[in-house]
Every structure is written in C-alpha cells, then in structure tokens.
C-alpha cells in the first residue's frame, strides 16, 4: 500500500467522523430549534440516550454473543443511583454521572461472576431473572425509591457552576456524552479486545484453547457494557428529571434487544441505527394511535425474517472499520486483522 492511499484513508475517516459530529452537534439541534417544538427536542434526547444503551448492549449481545434479557436493570441502576445521590446527598451532576456508571458496572460484575459459566439460553434466563429482581426491588423498596410513584430530580444539570436548563443545552450535554461513549465503545469493538470477544462468541472452547481467558474476558466486557448503560441511565435521570420503575422493566430490556437485533447483532453502527429507528418509529407512526407498539413488534419480526443480519450487518460494519481506519491498523498494530 502506498503512502498516498494511507493519507486518503485517514482523510476519509476524519471526514466521516467530522460529518457525523456536525450532524449530531450542528444540523440536528439547528433544525430542531428552528422547528421550535420542545417535544421533538425531548425525542432527540431520548434517542441519543438509547443510542448509547443499544451500542453498549451490542458489546455483549452482539460482539460477545451473550444474549442479555435484563439490560434495562442496569439502565435503571444507573438512573436510580444518580437520582438518589443527587436528591439525598446533593451530589452534583459531574459526580453522579460517573457514580451511576460505576454502580451499574459493579452490579454487572456481581451478576457476571456467577453467571458467566452459563452459556446461551441459560445465561439469557439468568439475566432475565436479575432484571426482574431489580425491577421488583425498585418497585417495592418504597422507603428508598418511592416505589411506583417514581423519583423526581429538581436540580438542573450543573457543570462547573453553569446551569443547563434550556432543552437545547441539555441536548448538547447528552450529545457530547453520547459521542464520547460511542467513540469509546467503537474503539473497544474494533480492537484486539473486540476480536477476542468475537472469537469467544464463535467458539468459546476453541478460544480458551488458543489462550484467551474466556470468563475473565466476558466479565470485562459485561462490566464495560453495563458501565456505559449506567452512564446513559444517569443522564436519563438528570435530563428527564423524573424516573419510575416502569421505565426499567422487562419490556424495556426487550426494546433494547430489538434495537440491537434490528440494527444487526455485532455491528455498532447498526445498533445505533436500530435505536434511532425504534425510538423515532413510534413518533412517526403516531397516526396509528394505539397500534404503534404493534408496529414495533412487526418491524422486529420482519427484520428477523427478512434481514437476519440486520440493517447494517456485522460483516459490513467491520468492512467499514477496516477501510476507514486501515492506516491505523495496517502497520504495526495489525493484531487480529490479518
């Protein structure tokens, strides 16, 4: 490969990243504030939050092949940790945000330690049980979580004394966080770590024989994934100002799973597309009234039937990663790509 080509690759990669950043930070908020409807802004906020959740779930369900049916539990742990720390101890956003992530990550490790020996359906069932345990706890521990009444956070997002009260400024907080988390998840997905996870997914016994510590790797992946989910939960708690156990029940886990599946298991851009599709679809299909959740089910069913690889399948996602970032990986750091 000539030097010339290397340059053009990196230029193209930079252009793509810049384009996406411009879209998220410039075009979308511009158009939304031009339209001037605060409701659209809220939809955009929740779409971004779900992008992070779907991308983080993709790391375990897609890349590592561990079907998780309780991901909303970690989302909820992050959200409730942030909300409790903020209302009871008055901690600022800058502290509750990482602490929400850390709490969810710790919970993830706790769940992962005993369940990582289980494979396929058994793991799915175990995470389903964990998800329900967390939901029941949130619902019934009324003295701490106020149960079904939910929790309210009155304090606006404050960073270094600056209060983010307008919807547009909250959007920017979420957008920056989403971009950073998705970038980190993308780098994890397309690194030696991600490739090791893929090998574990394809054949864990074989990976073990090749010298990969499967259980350790799975626990690391689970911790990373739940950390980002918790982060998204904390952002949700602060940006929405109200959380209730209903937002973290089984159906929510299924919604997140659907995002990843519709987008393409194992493909990070796919899961982001899936999240956007499933959050925006009910809004677009508002005319259908009650039937819009049916539309979600139908989209899920059709995508499994007609697009088993998803909208943006893993193979094409890896192709894109290879093409765009070849310059970084082609030379000295070619581990796992050749």
């Amino acid at each position: 490969m000539t030097d010339n080509k290397l340059v053009s690759h990196s230029v193209r990669a930079n252009l793509l990243v810049l384009g996406l950043l411009a879209l998220v930070l410039g075009v979308v908020p511009g158009v939304l504030s031009f339209l001037g409807k605060s409701y659209y802004m809220q939809v955009a906020n929740s779409a971004l939050i779900y992008c992070v959740v779907a991308a983080s779930m993709n790391l375990i369900t897609g890349t590592a092949g561990l079907m998780c049916l309780g991901h909303a539990a970690f989302f909820g742990i992050g959200a409730y940790t942030a909300a409790l720390l903020n209302t009871h101890f008055g901690l600022p956003f800058l502290l509750t945000l990482p602490l929400g992530g850390v709490a969810a990550g710790l919970a993830g490790v706790l769940v992962a330690l005993p369940t990582m020996r289980l494979i396929s359906i058994y793991f799915a069932v175990a995470t389903l049980g964990v998800g329900e345990i967390v939901h029941v706890t949130l619902l019934n521990w009324v003295s701490l979580t106020r149960g079904p009444m939910g929790m309210q956070i009155y304090e606006p997002i404050t960073i270094f004394g600056h209060q983010f009260t307008g919807l547009l400024s909250i959007y920017y907080v979420i957008a920056v966080l989403a971009c950073v988390s998705i970038y980190l998840l993308w780098r994890m997905n397309h690194s030696y770590f991600g490739n090791a996870l893929r090998s574990v997914r394809e054949d864990d016994q074989c990976a073990e024989a090749m010298g990969i510590s499967v259980v350790k790797l799975k626990i690391q992946a689970f911790a990373a994934s739940t950390f980002f989910t918790g982060l998204a939960g904390a952002v949700l708690a602060h940006s929405a100002g109200y959380i209730s156990p209903d937002s973290f029940q089984f159906s929510e886990s299924i919604l997140i799973l659907t995002m990843v599946v519709v987008g393409g298991l194992g493909s990070l851009p796919g899961s982001i597309l899936g999240a956007l599709l499933l959050i925006l679809l009910p809004e677009v299909a508002r005319g259908l009234g009650d039937m819009r959740n049916v539309a979600v089910g139908v989209v899920m069913f059709l995508s499994i039937l007609l697009l088993p690889k998803g909208i943006f399948g893993e193979v094409s996602a890896i192709e894109v990663a290879r093409k765009l970032f070849n310059s970084a990986w082609d030379g000295r750091n070619a581990v796992g790509w050749k």
Binding site: S120, A124, I254, T258, V296, M300, I304
Partner: peptide, 25 residues
C-alpha cells in the same frame, strides 16, 4: 443450531408483543 434458537427466540418475542398489543387495542 444456535442461529435457529436465537432467531426463534426473538421472533416469538416479536409475536408476543404483537399479540399483547392487539388484545390491548
């Protein structure tokens, strides 16, 4: 096979969402 297991798990989930929502409607 595992692919079949996962596909049917998800398709039955999708059908269950549809049934529930239609009954609710």
């Amino acid at each position: 096979s595992r692919a079949m297991r996962e596909a049917t798990l998800l398709s039955s989930l999708a059908v269950s969402i549809i049934i529930k929502e239609v009954i609710q409607h």
